[in-house]
Amino acid sequence: MKPVRQAALAVHFLTATGAVFAMLALLEAVQQDWRAMFLWLVVAFVVDGVDGPLARKYVVKTNAPEFDGVLMDLIIDYLTYVFIPAYALFGSDLLPGWTGWAAILVITYTSVVYFADTRMKTADNSFSGFPGCWNMAVLVFFATEPSPAVMLPIIVILAALMFVSVKFVHPVRTARWRSVTLPVALVWTLLSAYAAWRNFILPDIIEAGLVLTSIYLLCVGGVQQLIPRSRKSG
């Protein structure tokens, strides 16, 4: 077997580990061990950030075409970005009673429709509409503990933004401002891992950093739409 094919297959198998991390996260969620659940989701998030560049480097569509890496990635993303975080909202005390039911129904239904939308990617490799990153939103909810009166409207707004022509950047693939966006995404990942490790008992500065990096990642794509690209911009 040629080394390049071995590498391409290894990338597929790396992507597939996300399903294992999803199961481990779900098992912790059932036990209401939110700390461990989010730590596994952070691990899955890191794998998701690494496997894409590797897949492009080793041209997996050509060198290991018998496995559909895009389909595999979408299945795992739905579990780790949508399904398990939605369950965490419902299973915790953050959204009690009917608010929890409303949140999980809105999140799971709108997200599966969005994930199946063939128009979800833009020409510059950004996302058209909020890309269903509920794992990030729910982690911030756990860290900041807003009231249901604040949280539920945010969830509804984010769900609606899935179907609006507003851009959301991909930290790795969106070239414009990547020199800023990628470090911000890395900082967010480190802060989120720290927050989960500390069971969301955080110093104010860490909580503020998590909120600010989240706001940047949420809004930078829309800002790019408002600011015309100059000829010299990257």
Rank of each mutant, 00 (worst) to 15 (best):
I154D: 06
L210T: 01
I201E: 15
L79F: 11
Y216E: 01
I205G: 00
I155C: 07
A143E: 04
I75Y: 01
Q6V: 13
V11T: 12
V106D: 10
M136Y: 13
A143N: 09
P96L: 07
P203W: 05
S147N: 13
A55T: 05
M1A: 11
A10L: 09
R229N: 04
P228C: 03
A10G: 13
P85K: 03
A175F: 11
V113Q: 12
L89N: 12
E28D: 15
Y114T: 13
G209T: 05
F200C: 01
T118F: 11
L202I: 07
G221M: 10
A44N: 07
M37P: 05
H12F: 00
A103N: 08
V47K: 04
K2E: 13
V42S: 11
A103F: 06
S192Q: 08
F83A: 14
P131I: 06
T213S: 08
M162S: 14
L14W: 05
L39Y: 00
V113K: 14
E207N: 07
S233M: 06
P228D: 05
N135I: 09
D51I: 03
S233F: 01
T62V: 12
I206Y: 02
F127T: 15
V169P: 00
I76Q: 12
T62I: 06
L190Y: 05
E207T: 09
P53V: 02
L217S: 03
P131Y: 01
L210D: 00
V47M: 02
I154F: 14
T62G: 08
W197P: 02
W101Q: 05
V187L: 11
L218M: 11
D117M: 14
K2W: 00
Y216R: 02
T108A: 15
T110S: 15
V46G: 00
A149Q: 07
F45P: 02
V166T: 14
K57Y: 09
L14C: 06
P96A: 13
A19Q: 03
V11R: 03
V172D: 01
F200W: 15
G132P: 15
T213N: 07
N199T: 13
A143W: 03
F163D: 10
A196M: 14
E145W: 06
L139R: 08
M72W: 12
D33Y: 05
A149Y: 09
T99F: 12
V187P: 02
W134A: 15
M1T: 05
P146R: 03
S147I: 12
Y216H: 06
D73I: 01
P146H: 11
K232V: 08
M136C: 07
A64W: 06
I104V: 15
W98E: 11
A137Y: 13
A193I: 02
L27P: 02
P53H: 04
A44E: 06
L202K: 08
T213M: 03
G18S: 04
A149R: 05
V166H: 07
I154A: 13
A193N: 09
H170M: 10
T110P: 07
V156D: 12
G18L: 03
I215H: 00
L74E: 10
L9D: 10
V60N: 08
S192Y: 08
P131G: 09
I215P: 05
H170E: 10
V113G: 14
V156Q: 06
A22I: 10
A193R: 01
A8F: 11
W197Q: 12
T15N: 15
